[in-house]
Design a protein around this nucleic acid. Structure first.
Length: 938
RNA sequence: GCGGGGGUUGCCGAGUGGUCAAAGGCGCCGGGCUUAAGAUCCGGUCACGAUGUGUUCGUGAGUUCAAAUCUCACCCCCCGCACCA
């Protein structure tokens, strides 16, 4: 047998796959297709364990589907625009382009070393002008359809990244990338109106197979809320204030209005009043604050009166107008009608500023309409105190509708839907992204770059000094002639958010080897949508919403006819490794603190599993692992350590165990092909078992239960083979049959090993290029063989247990045993009871039927009744379906035991056994029941 | 506060009403093989008077002939969102 040296063989198999172009796939109409996709990586310098896990999962799925006869589109590319490369250029010198290309080269090599089965020809690189020209082209199309537009508006600005951010990219008031504070800044920016698709994005979630938490995240983000927009007049003013509310049923409880400090009317209303300076200080305080601090301080509600009064649209009451720090300018209308009686926040505010609180709902119909409110009662209730006819007594939706109708009649409001999702701000003031194809002309204004001048390429002659947008330092880029009038003009220097790149790369993959169109609609329609999309949960909001939106937008400009880009999404779990943990401080520490006391509180540190990260120092280098054990072992470990969606703890011990398993598997074909034995009875069992394992494996693969699949293919079958050998099986014909099926099964997770096997088996082709059809169903002989061995194994287990006890009783090692199978009437009784229960009969009622059974007579009736109640009744429910089938079938316990008596003796270390299958009880035979004979050692 | 997911036998982890004292892996223990080690193979790994019985699946109650699994309440952990009107 040759040693397992994957470091050599894996590389040569990878070359063989490459040379044969075995993973290249072409568009063939009518063939069943499967589109397997992983989120394309940002080319940081090295492949990390998260990548390895992600792609090991995807590759297993791709290879499986290929084996099952699908045309599998399985591409790889790079999300190669983005700030890290630009920041590296600023920090270390060099050019983002060169840094990116260099990183891509090294990460590509590492990915290839894993042996993933990509069609590399289809590579998509975001920073390739032949890719991003289409970003620009789409942008122009969106401009035509008004989906893209420019607006001067307050936007999120990250000081440390020197650029604006989309709402999705602000997490808890901080930048998603650098975690720096985000402030508000008024700027002219480009937006895509994703809100036009809000409803479709929400509805679409019902039709796709995304994990629940991702759906919940997206629903939250889209944030649909139904309510009403209501117009309040202002006493002595022509202006009106519009508010949005989800609770029009509480309209009669409004005792004040609150404006956001930056609301356009706020300044007007306080101008020249005693409140002006107070408003000014509140306004300034808020405007300088980062949104993060603002949110942190929102607990402290602050308000300033304006001195002005609004007019209630239905009752005409005068309502004071306030300005509050808790009102967000960008949500709804930036103004809130405050109902302290039925809203917690308004209640607190009213208490603080001594504003009246009015009850206009009761929570049960009997409650008094003037009961004092101890706290806001926010649930739906029955209207009271409306002061107008036709409202009191209405509940919930009915109440809301009635109020909305009244408002509509007066022209003072209407039912409406408000969305949390904002237009997507795509402008970025950074270099390493797609230039926005716009030219600003002093006379013509904003002029789109004509299509035939695309791509607008990024210039090389820029300075990366960390000051402002590098694009502005390129004269050749900035100074152009206006395409309309020919006079000197300036190019737009904003680039696009890099999430634009990842919003359609999956479409490009379907047809990336041409540059005439972004993709051919026919080809895209064939491959799309993505059947299996695998990646990290961190993209649940940004990428996965943008990509869904972009797909729909492209559909609507007629580029394809796909509604949703991704059918099934799988978010792989984190790769964790243990790190020191302080229980009292509740923090995870760097591995340098291992075996020490907590630096903060001096307590002894515990160990806890934490996501692999540089900051904790608990990372494992994939390169080193591959170097040491080979790619297949790493893949096997990753698939076996946990199910794809679960978190996975890295364990060196477990990895080594998997390596040992690989060593053992590696030797399998050699040893099996050396079998010299004859055909034997156990052969049927082995083939049956092989089929059973195959089915188990296929079921698991179909459900993306990769762990279960690997368990069957790489672990269970080894055990089965051991059993076969123990039972005397060594039939070379059977061996060949096993290897053939088995080799296909292992090729999904450990493809290199499978090629080794395939070659040893004498084949010239590559197993990676093969398809496989399911073996025939189990024959009845095979089913019986499975039953017989199951019976034998459970008998041996029982016998061993009993033997331990017997040693104490007989005072030494037993030498022989008498086995009493259960009396035939017990089995008949069991069959009758099983049938009774299976046909829906009540267990308790069976006692009544029992006396009528043919084998029951006056002599044995008492015994049988006693046995039924005490022993058989509970047992009926303990038997598995498989066992019940065995009992009701043709299983002959005595015959099985006789046939295997030699094996039983050697296994239990006995010199002889006696099998007793009589009709009358002798000795301990009364304890036996079907499938569980009694065993007496001597 | 809201939303999503969890708490299983030393550890990881499967398990959606009887198949459950609960798969599999890791760890640990014993045995075979071996000059020996490693690998591999076989067995054990809740307790006890053991062909059985008792106790166990976050806590407490309930439904059922039967609960890790269903219901209710509570506790704890993780992950998002968060004064969204």
């Amino acid at each position: 047998m040759t040693d397992y040296v994957p470091q050599n063989t894996e590389l040569s198999w990878q070359k063989a796959w490459d040379d044969a172009g075995i993973f290249n796939v072409e568009f063939k109409e009518g063939n069943p297709k499967f589109y397997c996709l992983e989120m394309y990586p940002y080319p940081s310098g090295k492949m990390h364990m998260g990548h390895v896990r992600n792609y090991s999962i995807g590759d297993a799925v791709a290879r499986y589907k290929r084996l099952m006869g699908y045309d599998v589109l399985y591409p790889m590319g790079f999300d190669s625009f983005g700030m890290p490369a630009e920041n590296a250029a600023i920090a270390e010198g060099g050019h983002p382009h060169d840094i990116t290309e260099r990183n891509m080269a090294s990460i590509t090599e590492q990915i290839k070393r894993m042996g993933f089965s990509y069609d590399w020809r289809r590579m998509v690189k975001s920073h390739d002008p032949q890719y991003y020209r289409w970003n620009q082209w789409f942008f122009l199309k969106f401009l035509e359809s008004d989906l893209a537009y420019q607006e001067f508006a307050p936007v999120n600005w990250c000081n440390s990244c020197d650029t604006v951010l989309a709402n999705e990219q602000v997490k808890a008031g901080r930048c998603w990338r650098c975690n720096g504070p985000v402030i508000q800044k008024e700027m002219s920016q480009w937006f895509l109106n994703i809100t036009e698709y809000a409803q479709e994005l929400l509805d679409g979630l019902e039709t796709i197979d995304f994990p629940e938490n991702v759906k919940a995240l997206q629903q939250d983000w889209i944030g649909r809320s139904e309510g009403a927009e209501i117009e309040f007049g202002i006493e002595g003013h022509d202006n009106t204030i519009r508010v949005f509310t989800t609770r029009p049923d509480t309209l009669f409880g409004v005792t004040f209005l609150t404006l956001a400090p930056e609301h356009e009317l706020a300044e007007k209303l306080v101008a020249g009043t005693e409140y002006e300076s107070e408003w000014k200080s509140l306004h300034d305080e808020i405007m300088v604050m980062s949104e993060f601090d603002r949110i942190k301080n929102m607990g402290k509600k602050k308000g300033v009166p304006t001195g002005s009064f609004a007019i209630h649209p239905l009752t005409g009451e005068k309502i004071p107008i306030w300005i509050g720090n808790f009102v967000i300018a960008s949500y709804g209308t930036g103004a809130v009608m405050a109902v302290p009686g039925h809203d917690d926040r308004d209640f607190d505010f009213a208490k603080k500023y001594d504003i009246p609180i009015k009850r206009v709902l009761v929570m049960n119909e009997e409650a008094g309409s003037d009961d004092e409110l101890e706290a806001a009662e926010c649930d739906l209730g029955w209207m009271v105190n409306s002061g107008l006819e036709g409202f009191d007594g209405l509940y919930g939706d009915e109440a809301k509708t009635a109020v909305c109708q009244a408002l509509e009649q007066q022209g003072k409001g209407n039912g409406t839907v408000n969305w949390k999702i904002r237009p997507w701000l795509i402008s970025r003031q950074r270099y390493w992204g797609t230039p926005i194809p716009i030219i600003h002309c002093p006379s013509c204004g904003v002029v789109p770059v004509p299509e035939d001048q695309l791509p607008v390429e990024l210039p090389r002659d820029v300075i990366f000094d960390g000051k402002g947008n590098p694009l502005e330092t390129s004269d050749s880029f900035c100074n152009v002639d206006c395409p309309k009038c020919g006079t000197p003009a300036k190019r737009e220097t904003d680039t696009m958010d890099t999430f634009v790149d990842s919003s359609w790369y999956f479409l490009r993959y379907t047809d990336s080897m041409q540059n005439d169109v972004p993709f051919n609609p026919e080809v895209a329609n064939h491959w799309m949508n993505v059947d299996f999309y695998c990646g990290g949960i961190e993209h649940a909001q940004m990428h996965l919403i943008y990509a869904r939106f972009w797909t729909k937008a492209l559909r609507d400009i007629g580029l394809h006819n796909i509604d949703e880009p991704f059918n099934e999404l799988l978010c792989q779990g984190m790769v964790n490794k243990s790190a020191p943990w302080c229980n009292s401080c509740g923090i995870t520490l760097h591995v340098d603190y291992s075996d020490q006391d907590c630096p903060h509180c001096d307590e002894t540190l515990a160990i806890r599993s934490a996501k692999m990260s540089k900051s904790l120092g608990n990372t494992v280098s994939p390169e080193e692992m591959i170097e040491k054990y080979g790619a297949d072992t790493v893949r096997l470990f990753i698939l076996f350590a946990a199910n794809p969606t679960a978190g996975m703890d890295w364990s060196d011990a477990a990895l080594e165990a998997n390596y040992r398993q690989m060593v053992q598997l590696h030797g399998m074909p050699d040893s099996i092909l050396n079998w010299q034995g004859q055909a034997s009875d156990i052969d049927v069992w082995m083939i049956a078992r092989l089929k059973q394992r195959y089915n188990q494996w296929q079921d698991a693969m179909d459900n993306y239960d990769l762990r279960g699949a690997v368990d069957a293919s790489h672990f269970d079958l080894v055990k089965d083979l051991n059993w076969y050998r123990r039972r005397g099986g060594e039939n070379p014909e059977i061996g060949k049959e096993i290897l053939d099926v088995w080799c296909h099964m292992i090729s999904v997770a450990t493809p290199h090993l499978a090629e080794d096997w395939w070659k040893i088996m004498g084949n010239d082709d590559l197993i990676a290029g093969r398809t496989f059809t399911k073996p025939a169903d189990l024959t009845s002989d095979e089913k019986s063989a499975l039953e017989a061995e199951t019976y034998l194994r459970s008998f041996l287990e029982q016998a061993r247990k009993v033997a331990k006890v017997a040693v104490k009783h007989i005072g030494g090692q037993p030498e022989s045993a008498t086995i009493h199978t259960s009396r035939p009437w017990k089995r008949e009784l069991a069959i009758a009871a099983i049938n009774h229960v299976n046909s829906g009969g009540n267990v308790k009622a069976f006692a009544g039927i029992l006396a009528e059974l043919p084998f029951v007579n006056s002599n044995n009736k008492g015994e049988i009744m006693g046995f039924w109640g005490k022993r058989m009744l509970p047992q009926i429910f303990k038997w598995s379906d498989e066992e019940k089938t065995m009992i009701c079938g043709h299983l002959d316990e005595g015959a099985i035991l006789s046939a295997a008596s030699g094996f039983i003796c050697s296994d239990l270390g006995l010199s002889s056994i006696d099998i007793e299958s009589g009709v009358v009880d002798v000795g301990r035979s009364s304890a036996a029941i079907p499938l569980a004979p009694s065993i007496v050692y001597s």
